[in-house]
Computed example of a mutant assay.
Amino acid sequence: MKIGIIIHSMTGNTSLVAERIKNRLENEGHELSLERLAIIGGEDQNQSDPQKISIEPLSTNIEELDLLILGGPVRGFQASPAMKAFLGGIDKLGGKDTMIFVTHAFPFNWMGGNSAIKQMRNICTEKGANIIFTGIIDWKNSKREIQIDSLAAGVARKATKAAS
């Protein structure tokens, strides 16, 4: 199965989670690409308007993927503006199986994680994606490593099921 992981990471936390997911899926025999969104003109951490953010073109062709995994940080109790800008620039996802995960520094999912997932899910669904899995990593949680392992296992399970 050809899988693409596309992330926005400001502090490296989302990148770390994406690498763990990638390693797990590669160990299970999937073909993977991992791409980090690059903002044209550099990262402005104060920019919250996705309309004012330009993303460099990806090297990954989303249409060629069997499965798309999207990840990003929670910012201001919302999905990353850079991820929203990226998703806003996609014309359609045409029934593509899609997974979403976010990372945040809060102890409870209701403190931003749930709303960020909902926003990303809504944008993807409007573009025709088939959301098959979501997850939230609470970065300050003492069981963060267990959460990451559980997320990677859940992604791998769903990827295997989608491949069959």
Rank of each mutant, 00 (worst) to 15 (best):
S150L: 13
M111G: 12
I117G: 04
T125H: 07
K161E: 15
G4E: 06
T134Y: 01
G135Q: 02
G72C: 09
K2V: 08
K161R: 10
D97S: 14
I136T: 14
S142C: 02
E126H: 02
G76D: 09
A159S: 15
L67Y: 14
A105M: 09
K118R: 15
N114A: 08
E26W: 00
L70K: 08
E43P: 00
L151T: 06
S150I: 07
A38G: 02
E126G: 13
E28A: 15
P107R: 11
S48Y: 12
I131S: 06
L65N: 10
N141A: 13
L68H: 08
T103S: 03
M1D: 06
S164Y: 09
I136E: 12
N27Q: 14
I146R: 10
I123T: 11
F101K: 02
M10C: 01
A85Q: 05
L67C: 09
N13F: 00
T60R: 09
D66N: 15
I21S: 01
E28M: 10
L16P: 00
T11E: 10
D91R: 13
L32E: 07
F133S: 05
L67F: 15
L70M: 12
M10Q: 07
Q45L: 11
S150C: 12
Q47D: 09
R75W: 07
I132L: 10
I117Q: 09
K158M: 14
S59H: 14
G76N: 11
G72N: 03
L68P: 04
E19P: 00
I69F: 05
S59R: 14
K52W: 00
Q47N: 13
R24M: 11
V17F: 04
P57L: 09
I3T: 13
A38Y: 02
I39W: 02
I39P: 01
G4P: 12
I131W: 04
F101I: 01
N13V: 00
S115F: 03
G95E: 09
I39Q: 11
I21Q: 03
T134L: 06
N27E: 15
G76W: 12
A79M: 10
G112H: 04
G128I: 08
S164P: 01
M111H: 13
K2F: 05
K22A: 10
T60E: 14
G42E: 03
K96I: 05
S59P: 02
P50M: 05
V102N: 04
H8M: 01
N130I: 01
G72Q: 01
F77A: 12
I5K: 02
I123M: 11
A152Q: 06
L16H: 03
K161M: 06
R36G: 03
A85V: 05
E35T: 03
C124S: 13
G76I: 05
M1Q: 07
D149Q: 15
L68W: 09
Q51H: 07
T60P: 13
M120F: 10
G29W: 08
L68G: 07
Q47H: 04
A18Y: 01
G42S: 04
D138T: 11
N61Y: 09
K158G: 01
S142Q: 13
G154E: 11
S33V: 13
K143R: 13
H30W: 11
D149G: 15
D49F: 00
N61F: 11
M99E: 11
G94Y: 08
D66P: 03
G4K: 04
K52Y: 01
V155T: 04
G113A: 05
I55E: 02
I90Q: 03
R144H: 02
S33R: 10
I69N: 04
S115I: 04
A156S: 15
T160S: 10
N27P: 01
A129H: 06
